[in-house]
Nucleic acid binder design. Structure first.
Lengths: 184, 184
DNA sequence: CATGGACGTCAACACATGTTGGCCTACAGT
DNA sequence: ACTGTAGGCCAACATGTGTTGACGTCCATG
């Protein structure tokens, strides 16, 4: 048996956990499966992360890295927002984990609300003072991610990312910019 | 012990199952908990439904009852669609069950795609021939339901249903009616 | 060279779950 | 009154889970 450094093992576990949680959600993802993927004994997971709950918390760390939107050109900011959001849905990211688990796991649900309140809310608040608008935009974006990446609705999975951006951005734009438009 | 009729017991189990699946999702909802809620023995659930999987299938039966939208006035049809959709999210309905479970359970995920393909798709197809538009509308509606009823995002939970309709309907309208509008 | 600590495995515990078969009991039909 | 059947309960089994502790083994450091 070749030995690995502790940090490398820990990283390997986290990588495997990220994949498993994203694929199966919190309850169906087992410590044993994560350990098998990482090529080590289940007891190692406990040694490095303490418990399944804490392993999951580590896999939930997510930083959307939303830029400061103040003063951004309103025409492009919606498309940029959508594009930025979609880029966080590749395999290995934390967002799939969070959504997959957040629907059935109270801890993940709370974490998701935190991300919303601490990252999305302040960023989009630069564009509109109305928190309800931010909720609407989040619903739009999360709904797209849900249908495309989780539920795999055929018309959405076959579209390219830029097609998605082109289709969604105007709707997002409209949500934070209703005042400047006429009603249809 | 007062005896109930078989049909009444079966209905009681189904009601309890609906609530449990909606609250906890497929994996965390246990036969024992459903039986306890229904006030009977877990073995009864097996007698009447055969297995957890078949009990879940029974709880997944959903008929959105979408009306024929052909010839409907395009101005009102979006609002009607949103309102109709939201009405299926009250406790006791099958849609919360389906979404809560569809994110982690393959069977429910497949069922959700079926509902989409067999009910939503044909109904909305009367308004636009492009299936991608139907996907976008579904993403919009499911995203709203997800954020409001499952994740309970504060700004969305405090809005009234009609406020939601007023906010979402124009976006939906725009999705199936892009051709008739100018771009912003 | 020894030796302690980090890396890793193994076997087992305690518990919850879906599921099964046997048994009891009330009620309807004769 | 007798009895078959349907409604219902109980105890148990097999399995998979998170978690734990004891036991090896390599490597760097004295």
């Amino acid at each position: 048996m070749t030995r690995r450094s502790g940090a490398a093992t820990k990283a390997g576990i986290l990588e495997a956990a990220l994949a498993r949680f994203a694929e199966d959600g919190y309850e169906r993802a087992t410590i044993r499966a994560v350990a098998a993927d990482a090529g080590i004994d289940p007891a190692m997971v406990m040694r490095y992360f303490g418990s399944k709950e804490r392993l999951f918390a580590a896999a939930c760390e997510v930083d959307l890295g939303l830029p400061d939107l103040r003063g951004a050109p309103r025409d492009e900011v919606a498309a940029a927002l959508v594009r930025h959001f979609l880029s966080h849905w590749e395999p290995g990211e934390s967002l799939p984990v969070l959504l997959r688990a957040g629907v059935t796991n109270a801890q993940a649900e709370e974490r998701l609300r935190e991300v919303f309140a601490a990252q999305v809310m302040p960023a989009v608040a630069a564009l509109t003072p109305d928190p309800r608008r931010v909720g609407l935009i989040s619903a739009q974006l999360l709904g797209m991610a849900l249908c495309r990446y989780i539920l795999k609705f055929p018309p959405l999975t076959t579209m390219t990312r830029e097609e998605i951006v082109a289709a969604i951005a105007p709707a997002v734009h409209r949500f934070f910019d209703l005042d400047n438009e006429e009603k249809t």
